[in-house]
Amino acid sequence: MFKILEKTQYSENVFKFRVHAPQMAKHAHAGQFLMVRANETGERVPFTFADWNAEEGWIEFIFMVIGKTTTDLSQLGAGDEIADITGPLGKPTEMDNGSWCVIGGGVGLAIAYPVARALCAQGAKVRVIMGARTKDLLLLEDQFRELPLENLYITTDDGSYGEKGVVTQPLERLCIDHEIEHVFAVGPVPMMKFSALTCAKYDMPIIASLNPIMVDGTGMCGCCRVEVDGKTKFACVDGPDFDATKVNWADLSARQASYRAEEATAMEHRRETCACHS
């Protein structure tokens, strides 16, 4: 069992857990993920590390309430326990020094943050583009602002904060101005896909951190397979980072969406059986 030390709420639907997991904290790297099984009947769901501290023995992950598991998690608080957390999993993000643009969209900002922080720590020049549908969904702005960034750009789809529009607008300007050498993107599939298309136009290398459905997450089941450069790759062990210009985005989004009906059934079942609503 894994004890929740602290719960932070960022918005109505977005939470952060700090969990006691000293061995995981000792071995975690930016870009890696963990698998959570909330309780004995739970499914295994991947979340990327948001932060960790080896000395204090904790790890953190951020989640947005979307389905049954994240709803269950959101009802837990400090002092409660999570049945299983497995990690760190996946390859750490490869970060050479140089000039980087880190793009985070929506809940992907939680993944972009530790990558930006690690890049800053090793002395890279870092620009960050934060994107969200609306101002309330923009995560971790304060944390990003505390980093020694070259610049921070914010876009919202509805124009409620920052530049109205999408992350590819500032990205394209940065590509044109030759201010960056590498791009890291994480967020919803359309955001990553269009970031990749923008970068491809300017021969700008871009890696994306992919988030397919996983079952085991440890290189056994093959559920998280994605086509990259025409070859079958496994996000859990070959990734989660891949060359974004070579990912088959259509495949990834079809596979991500393939359990929508079951997710609705699970939520319905939860409403019917959950004691807290009776």
Binding site: T41, G42, E43, R44, K68, T69, T265, A266
Partner: peptide, 13 residues
């Protein structure tokens, strides 16, 4: 492993 045959009693479909 995940008992998907018992979904939605178990969460994995």
């Amino acid at each position: 492993l995940m008992k998907a045959n018992k979904f939605p009693e178990y969460d994995t479909p």
